[in-house]
Write a protein that binds this DNA or RNA. Sequence first.
DNA 1: TTCATAGTTTTCGTATACAAGACGGTTGAC
DNA 2: GTCAACCGTCTTGTATACGAAAACTATGAA
Lengths: 224, 224
Amino acid sequence: MKSDIDPLEQRSRSDQIAQTLEDQILTGRFAPGARLDEASLAEEHNVSRTPIREAFHRLAQSGLVVQQPRRGVFVRVSSPVEILEMFEVMAELEAACGRLAARRATDADIAELRQAEIECRAACDAGDIDLYYLKNGIFHHLLYAQSGNGYLEQEASRLHRRLKPYRRMQLFLRGRLQQSMDEHAAIVGAISAGDATQAAALLRDHVAVQGEKFHHVMSHLPKT
Amino acid sequence: MKSDIDPLEQRSRSDQIAQTLEDQILTGRFAPGARLDEASLAEEHNVSRTPIREAFHRLAQSGLVVQQPRRGVFVRVSSPVEILEMFEVMAELEAACGRLAARRATDADIAELRQAEIECRAACDAGDIDLYYLKNGIFHHLLYAQSGNGYLEQEASRLHRRLKPYRRMQLFLRGRLQQSMDEHAAIVGAISAGDATQAAALLRDHVAVQGEKFHHVMSHLPKT
DNA sequence: TTCATAGTTTTCGTATACAAGACGGTTGAC
DNA sequence: GTCAACCGTCTTGTATACGAAAACTATGAA
């Protein structure tokens, strides 16, 4: 079952560096548009330029940075439009997961999903936004897995990760947490009932709202 | 407008090699499971191992090959299950394109789509499978663009390309061409009518059928 | 005959070196 | 004074070299 993952267990240095850089970009250490310097990063990680370059390639492929020939690599400036587009696709992917999960999820799966939902609610009630954020991620990844489609799971996870920073900021909007919670409950209900259409629609809206909220956040931000 | 693309115009040698290798894999020069040897490929392209390695990274990220640390890179063996999964995702992505296009396509867009459909039919009537294959690709890419979502367009195109070899083989199944043609007409009709739900459903089925047909083809093949 | 272990060989991962292109500053001319 | 061209420096892209890890093979023992 996990034979696909096993070979990746032993990762090379460059892969580790790519992971680190990705985290640093997503958490904001490198601002959008900033240039990533091979030499200084090599020095910082105590490696030569080669692993850094390999890491850059990974990041470029995942879309986090852009490489300009003979110029260097820059943290991609995702325009609000692009981000909204990604949220729109995320909504469709999650809807697809829901549609399939409604047909394929076993009783054990649903119990697991319900448990995740409960833990989300607990975190919400405790006012622990970090914990909610974590549990919410688990909830959604469970859903991806329950689509029974490994490729879909992988793609959904990829985009989910990509949208991480933008999803987080809108958690702080007043009332969003409770609303999101209620949506989770409805989603679990639909899947549990085997209602594929309903599950898909609920999930599409659930994520689409995140895009809208992001729009709100953007409009409140000082314009650059 | 095309400032995003401009820098890529001047591509490095490694990018060209990656492109070449990708084509060669998709067209079957390298069989699934075959090992890609850095040294011999470097010699063949008259470059050192470095650009080859960079090309490998690109291919690995796009999922065409897998890199096993200290083992080498291998053309990914996509199991029938994986391919069916990809068709399922493709169906959802195209459905999403249709849903959005039904709301966003302009009259000019629809005229363009209808024109593409006519050219498909012409190729079909002429019995020119290669031409049909080409026109069919144009039809679908138009649809992706008309979703009005650049990210969705990009992702759909990526997966479309990935499934290229598997889609082609099922074109030869008896009766599939005519059936596919009728589906196209219905899809254009739904989008033209602005019926998002119908367009999405038609497209999902249209692509899902391809997955099923692939399944048929597989079952007729001598088992490896 | 079969299995295990040790040695050899291959090739991967990283380091370093070198070449070519791009950016910036300075200088000269109009 | 301003603009353009040229030169220097910096950074990327590619080549080459070296160390290490894994696979293969052969040999010996059970």
